[in-house]
């Protein structure tokens, strides 16, 4: 993890509405191509819906990491 340079952190822990994926989409729309975004989520649904959306939207899921009490998703905007 330490080698990946994160440009933006989206702390969506505790977000049920609009939720972590909406926070990610918002951030990706504002990010530049090549930027790396870390999303922190406590929502169990994120484990399926963030990878699904990232794949469909054509971005890159660099990694998913279990942290203490939350999950961290690392996503790169590629287009």
């Amino acid at each position: 993890m330490s080698e990946i340079k994160v440009d933006r952190v989206v702390d969506a822990r505790g977000s049920h509405c609009p939720g972590p994926l909406m926070e990610l989409i918002k951030t990706i729309r504002n990010a530049k191509i090549g930027e790396v975004i870390a999303v922190y989520s406590t929502d169990s649904g994120s484990k399926t819906d963030i990878p699904r959306w990232v794949e469909k939207a054509g971005h890159q899921l660099i990694g998913v990491y279990e942290r203490e009490g939350y999950t961290e998703f690392i996503v790169k905007k590629v287009k």
């Binding site: 939720g19 909406m22 169990s44 649904g45 399926t48 819906d49 699904r52």
Partner: peptide, 12 residues
Amino acid sequence: SPLPRTFPHEAV
């Protein structure tokens, strides 16, 4: 829907 579901939270 902007999400894979009809609402952000699964139960809803």
